[in-house]
Amino acid sequence: MLTNKQIKLINSLHSKKGRKENDLFLVEGEKSLLELVKSDFKVDFFLLNEVHVSLADQISQQSKAPIYFLDPESIQKLSTLVNNQIGLAVVHQKKFPPFIIQDRYTIVLDGIRDPGNLGTIIRICDWYGFKQLVLSEDCTEFYNPKVIISTMGSFSRIEFTYVDLPTFFKEHQEYKKIGAVLNGVNIHHYQFPDKGFIILGNESNGIREEIMESLDERITIPAFGEAESLNVGISTAIIADNLKRFILS
């Protein structure tokens, strides 16, 4: 039976402070839970709708973590989501080894604040086979519940690190710094270098001036209509698609 201490713990994980103090986070919803049990994340416990026996069976086959059952109304009260009567899990935050760049190209984010955008970008990275993500120190929190749910399970396959970007770039000078801006080289004609960082900036202000000054090259997604700008998640997907076509060609 779920204890008052566990209920208090779940509620504390609704806040960034609680997640940081406990080194835990919440995974919510059926899709994310099923992706979670296929990963190497350590689960503290699951909380599931007592009606969804088949989901409990699937989870118990792949995880030894305790499963507690509650009625859907009680689950909804403990969830951060507007609509979640399926269940949630309390999960340990992952401790990564020292970050070492693995691939020719890595996505780098400068000041991304919207949790939905970050979650979408994580999902895009997973779709296009990027295994790592570099974030400036003021990007929104990876383990924010809105980020996690927006990834649709892709959070479990992406290694990430928060860094001071100028210091990070100095430590990796062999990688070209390629910024996504409004006045760069048309990406359809751009010749990608052998390896580099694709840098995308804040939703409102773009890449900050300090980082702009350190860029090696600048690229632009050409507009054919009247829209002022593109969502940063959409921009990430378009650039990733063009990059992957270049690498595979």
Rank of each mutant, 00 (worst) to 15 (best):
T3L: 10
I10A: 00
N11W: 09
L13C: 08
H14V: 08
R19C: 00
E21T: 06
L24D: 03
L26P: 02
V27I: 04
G29W: 00
G29P: 01
K31A: 04
K38L: 00
S39E: 09
K42N: 07
D44L: 10
L47R: 05
V51R: 15
V51K: 15
H52L: 08
S54I: 15
A56C: 11
Q58F: 07
I59F: 06
P72E: 03
P72M: 11
I75T: 01
K77D: 01
V82A: 09
N84P: 10
P97D: 08
F99P: 05
I100E: 15
R104M: 11
Y105T: 01
T106V: 15
I107N: 00
V108T: 06
I112G: 00
P115T: 06
N117T: 14
I122A: 02
I122Y: 05
R123V: 00
F130G: 12
F130V: 10
L133G: 04
V134D: 01
V134R: 00
L135I: 03
E137W: 03
T140S: 04
E141H: 15
N144K: 11
N144C: 08
P145R: 14
P145C: 13
I148H: 01
S150I: 13
G153P: 05
V163Y: 11
V163R: 08
K170H: 10
E174I: 14
E174V: 15
Y175N: 13
K176E: 07
K177P: 04
A180Y: 11
L182Y: 07
N183V: 02
N183A: 08
G184S: 07
V185N: 14
V185W: 12
Q191F: 03
Q191P: 00
D194H: 12
E203P: 12
N205W: 06
G206S: 06
G206T: 03
R208D: 13
E209V: 14
I211W: 09
E217S: 12
R218F: 02
L230W: 05
G233T: 04
I234W: 11
S235H: 03
A237L: 04
I239E: 08
A240E: 03
D241R: 15
D241G: 08
L243A: 03
F246R: 05
L248C: 14
